[in-house]
């Protein structure tokens, strides 16, 4: 790059042209078309203001679809009634929050004013614990095995990643069919088990399968992140460890795991956030959180309170959203703090 008198920074494109490659020339032509308006704009507003031009499109979308809705949700959380528009709704202060939080005992959802919310909180908690741990362990083991493969690494990586590309609803429907009373699993194991199990109608089984399907669905993504981390560890460190006479077990605990920690931390943060947000695939799989409320999660409670009942309590749903957002914020901060601490 070289700066000219007008402060405009010109990309070094001579190399691309001189190579004479057709693709390069096409790219060059395309760049020329894109470059021209930016060159003019930069002359007009100066180099220092250019970064704003580049972040503006994303900032605008982010503002409209994320930032303003967040502010609106906080606003709705302090209003009551069933009116849709914010300015028609009466201000009620912390009433929605106090309703959500009023419980005889926080350990027993039945004693709470909004028992469904607390059931959902409990369900989300166990789901998060099992799903995050399960996915982390399965992804880690898969990545370790993939990393050791000398052949077919790309093939298996693609296989494990493939479910990530599917729609949550499709995944849930496929598994629902698989687990149904007359589904594939029962058909195969009916003789062996003597009777057919209606997996999704039994509390423990349904919870197991909700977590299982989620791990199956998402592990490819996390495996990829962990695999990237494993491949970033220089091979010669393991050779040095070999010369040092380090056992495989100690290599894993003392070298691989600590060197992988930044990636594992990212995976854990993402997993926790996504687990707390569980909704679509579980909702379809369990026909709306069943059996009973065994698989009703917080996002489902928010969705149903705001949009799926006759009396639409936007304020209450927003307050629940805000509480969930705060919980996620705290979780993330704690993990970032742990990460920083581990680094030092």
């Amino acid at each position: 790059m070289a700066a000219t008198d007008d402060g405009y920074v010109r990309p070094a494109r001579e190399a691309a042209v001189s190579s004479g490659d057709r693709g390069d020339r096409l790219l060059e032509a395309a760049m020329g078309v894109v470059e021209w308006p930016f060159t003019r704009l930069q002359r007009l507003i100066g180099l220092r203001r250019m970064p704003w031009v580049f972040v503006l499109p994303n900032m605008a979308l982010f503002t409209i679809f994320v930032f303003i809705p967040v502010l609106l949700a906080i606003g709705y959380a302090f209003t009551g009634g069933t009116e849709l528009l914010l300015w028609n709704r009466p201000f009620v202060g912390f009433e929605n929050f106090s309703r959500l939080l009023s419980c005889g005992s926080y350990l027993d959802p039945a004693t709470c004013e909004l028992d469904l919310f607390w059931t959902a909180v409990f369900n989300t908690t166990w789901y998060t614990a099992f799903n995050a741990t399960g996915t982390l362990v399965v992804s880690l083991v898969t990545a370790l095995v993939l990393n050791r493969l000398t052949r077919g690494k790309a093939f298996f990586r693609a296989i494990f990643f493939y479910p990530v590309l599917l729609s949550p609803v499709v995944v849930a429907l496929v598994w629902k069919w698989f687990l149904a009373r007359n589904g594939l699993l029962n058909a195969v194991f009916a003789d062996m088990m003597g009777e057919r199990t209606i997996f999704l109608l039994e509390v423990l089984w349904s919870r197991f399968w909700v977590v299982y399907v989620s791990i199956w669905f998402h592990m490819g993504f996390y495996t990829l992140i962990i695999l990237a981390g494993l491949q970033a560890i220089p091979r010669d460190i393991y050779e040095a460890a070999l010369i040092d006479g380090t056992s495989r077990w100690r290599q894993f605990w003392r070298l691989t795991l600590p060197l992988l920690m930044p990636n594992l931390l990212v995976v854990l943060v993402l997993l926790l956030i996504r687990s707390v947000q569980v909704f679509d695939e579980a909702w379809v799989l369990t026909d709306g959180g069943g059996p009973g409320t065994a698989n009703t999660f917080v996002v489902q409670f928010i969705y149903e309170t705001a949009f799926a009942t006759d009396v639409r309590l936007y304020g209450l749903a927003s307050a629940a959203s805000v509480l969930m957002g705060l919980a996620l914020l705290v979780l993330t901060l704690v993990q970032l703090w742990l990460g920083k601490k581990a680094e030092n």
Binding site: D236, I237, R254
Partner: peptide, 26 residues
């Protein structure tokens, strides 16, 4: 044997002291 690698191959997350003692602990 002991080997000194071109890239040094030090354990990046361990202190110098730990790097030196790692093999002896094994």
């Amino acid at each position: 044997i002991s080997m000194v690698f071109q890239s040094y191959a030090l354990y990046p997350h361990l202190t110098v002291r730990k790097n030196l003692s790692f093999g002896l602990e094994n």
